[in-house]
Nucleic acid binder design. Structure first.
Lengths: 257, 257
DNA sequence: CCGCAAATGTTCGCATTGCGCACACTCGTG
DNA sequence: CACGAGTGTGCGCAATGCGAACATTTGCGG
């Protein structure tokens, strides 16, 4: 999948409208016209027209002074999840796996330098990170990210690594490009990836790829644990085989679509 | 919150662009220009410009023939959840409650005639319905919907009931407007709502309102169970008090913001 | 309380941006 | 291979969206 864009085929009004929609966040849940104008760099008149359009469409509401998002905006986001098909198919398998291993199970896809969660079965076990559908984490330091990166071809992987900003998230994090490349090549041949406290102290996980009918990696599924609770040995010996079997089951269901 | 809209202040291009974005779904995960033109009623030239703009913005990708949504679209949806603040605050309380009662706990808000899930703690208990953030259910036949409707003023409730299409989802469903109004008034005075197999056979739940500082109902929180597992007596006697206490705790945290 | 300046919200003339018609290209069938 | 149907695209033009300027509101100081 590549990107295409030409100036004459670019609808500035749509772009500006989406900029307005994305200006709302946790720090600015409600905004006046002038707030929005400052936040987006658009003139007040333009911000007003776009906000009033979003109000008319039901994505934003107003008391006549401030504007806020409505729950209808969630429908925009969930068009992606519903168009993906994977979450519905994978959910029952992931729930069964989580039942057996008593840990959280997640599925994600690769988006740029990040993984994006598209399905999740959570346990109420203490975990440092709170994750939900739509959550993003850096691909390079997550088990699912390693599996997804292993599914890229060499050109794509080179491009990814060229643009990667090495970050030391924990003392265990890989911070050398060559080491990371070697690790991803190892994941490619073994068919799964472990992360041991590279993303966050105390967090340990294992991931497997989900392939489509043509053998391309389209998503990853993982089991996330806490290092104080599950040893690497248990992760490798007990959980990994179950995870790999679950991934194969999901794939065969996907192949029927 | 009310809606405002004037023709001169309506940006047709933004509206059309969002129509294109919403045309993707489970039945049409990938579309050609011509598919999109048919799905939206826009000319092929217009559909092309809008799709190419969405590609340039990263919300849609293309192989040169078909167009598909990218995970970036999820960010649009999650602007709402992150701007709401409630999910982050409520999640730990909901997890603790779910741990104690061993059932699913959810929070939702009212959007038109539906509730929309904004937070959820799931157990791997057998439930007929698969729910996630963004999921929608009819307000009139859900415990959280009843609680949210009880928080409307009389004019708002009249408007809601006037527009409601009575539906018999199960043999237990309320199908008479007067009965439903009486039930909502009862919920208003008692401060919680039960649903007993009105939404789906076998599903039983209890919900409590979450109020803001001014006492307005801004969301609802509930415990969902299976009728085969939890009697009404248990729901009322054991789970409801815990739920009400949890709602109060969440409210006092919200009041600090 | 009043005056004034700053900030915010809105109208409308106009030109630029987005539109769709018509052409170019591709695909499928006889 | 020819032809018709279907699909994708370029470009002239006017409709749509723009922002300058005006109207209204707010906040501060005397």
């Amino acid at each position: 999948m590549s990107s295409v864009g030409l100036e004459r085929d670019y609808v500035q009004s749509l772009s500006r409208g989406l900029t307005v929609l994305q200006a709302f966040n946790a720090d600015r849940p409600a905004m006046t016209l002038a707030d929005m104008s400052r936040a987006t760099g658009l003139t007040r008149a333009t911000a007003r027209r776009l906000l009033l359009t979003l109000v008319a469409l039901g994505f934003v509401c107003t008391d006549g002074r401030t504007f806020e998002l409505t729950p209808r905006v969630l429908d925009l986001g969930f068009a992606y999840v519903s168009s993906l098909q994977l979450p519905d198919i994978a959910q029952p398998f992931m729930e069964a796996l989580s039942d057996r291993v008593h840990e959280s199970v997640s599925a994600s896809v690769l988006d740029g330098a990040e993984i994006v969660y598209v399905a999740r079965v959570n346990t109420q076990r203490i975990m440092g990170i709170s994750l939900a559908i739509g959550s993003r984490l850096p691909a390079a330091w997550t088990s699912m990210g390693r599996v997804l990166l292993a599914g890229l071809n060499d050109d794509q992987l080179d491009t990814f690594l060229d643009g990667l900003v090495m970050t030391e998230l924990t003392s265990q994090s890989i911070t050398d490009v060559a080491v990371l490349r070697t690790e991803i090549h190892a994941v490619r041949s073994q068919g799964y990836a472990f992360i041991d406290q590279e993303l966050e102290e105390g967090i340990r996980s294992v991931a497997a790829p989900l392939h489509d009918r043509r053998g391309r990696t389209l998503a990853a599924v993982n089991v996330g644990t806490h290092a104080a609770r599950v040893t690497l040995k248990e992760l490798r010996g007990t959980i990994l085989p179950d995870l790999l079997a679950t991934a194969r089951n999901i794939e065969s269901q996907l192949a029927k679509r």
